[in-house]
Write a protein that binds this DNA or RNA. Structure first.
Length: 297
DNA sequence: GTCCAGGTCATCG
DNA sequence: CGATGACATGGA
């Protein structure tokens, strides 16, 4: 039994620009972008379900090959909504960007693009660790190997779809093998297990972060894990919660973009970056995401 | 060969 | 405290 759902996005919304932002690497393993659609495996009530998304106007069409319980349907809509940041009204953001001479081009270049999130907090944190200090193409290769070895796999329409490993599974990874044969550094492996342990113990969870009162306490909880620094914590908060204040300080791509646009004079001066973001209140994360994507498109 | 990538931690002085 | 080195590897 097939299921089809429609999810409305707050306009302006451009599904193809979102797909373009998703299509970062041929080594991406957690979803596949093919002919205007994106396919991925989504966990709903402990069941791994293949899902296809396509765009139609301001809506995302969600399809799965099987029928869903009402609760699964709700979970699926929430997942896709958070993945595409569907509820955010971008009009105030564009008004702000267009009033800024050095940023105005972002509005026309990327109109309708939304922050492509990572709804699963554990996955977001692990991805931030994998991406630390190496180039993105290498990071994608490492993630692919980890997921192929330890993730969940399901074949649909002759596509191999994978889901990121659970925290429990991550605790079982073979560090010697991944270090000796899959090019992982020992520190990354240790950090991945630290995060997994924090989730298994319940010290960190999506739900727990939601109960914390402010951005600073969420950041403090995440950085209490060895391996999660300010950059990783803010990256994950941005990708998993859409937190506007989550600026990934120290990010080379971000400082590069700000420097290139003449918005800061000194790449190492974090105060200058803070001063710039004071001019984008409430839209810090969107500004970062747009700057990243403006580099590669 | 050198430098640096969507950094972080341990170990100094 | 701030500075420095290690970490893994590939591409410019």
């Amino acid at each position: 039994m097939k299921t089809q759902l429609n999810l409305a996005c707050s306009p302006p919304f451009d599904f193809n620009k979102c797909l373009n932002a998703l299509y970062r690497s041929t080594d991406e393993i957690l979803y596949q972008v093919i002919d205007g659609s994106v396919f991925r495996l989504i966990k709903l009530e402990n069941e791994y379900i293949p899902v296809a998304l396509t765009g139609r106007g301001n809506e995302i069409i969600i399809e799965t090959p099987q029928s869903l319980t009402p609760h699964q349907t709700e979970q699926l809509k929430q997942y896709v909504g958070r993945w595409f940041d569907a509820d955010r009204d971008l009009k105030p953001f564009y008004a702000l960007v267009e009033s800024h001479p050095k940023l105005a081009h972002l509005s026309s270049q990327l109109h309708g693009l939304r922050i492509m999130g990572i709804p699963d907090l554990f996955e977001a944190l692990c991805w931030s660790i994998i991406g630390q200090q190496i180039n993105l193409s290498f990071a994608h290769k490492l993630k692919r190997r980890l997921v192929e070895l330890y993730g969940e796999k399901l074949t649909w329409k002759e596509m191999d779809l994978y889901h990121f490993p659970s925290p429990e599974k991550m605790l079982t990874i073979d560090e010697e093998y991944l270090h000796n044969h899959q090019q992982f550094s020992r520190s990354k492996l240790k950090y991945l297990k630290n995060v997994a342990q924090a989730f298994v113990s319940g010290n960190i969870s999506h739900q727990r972060l939601l109960t914390l009162p402010d951005f600073e306490s969420k950041q403090a909880l995440l950085t209490s894990v060895k391996g999660i620094g300010v950059w990783s914590a803010n990256y994950a908060l941005m990708k998993s919660f859409g937190a506007p204040k989550a600026i990934p300080f120290g990010d080379t791509g971000l400082t590069q973009a700000l420097f290139n646009l003449g918005l800061i004079d000194d790449r190492k001066n974090e105060d200058a970056i803070r001063a710039f973001f004071k001019t984008m209140p409430g839209w810090e994360a969107y500004t970062v995401f747009y700057l990243w994507n403006s580099l590669s498109s």
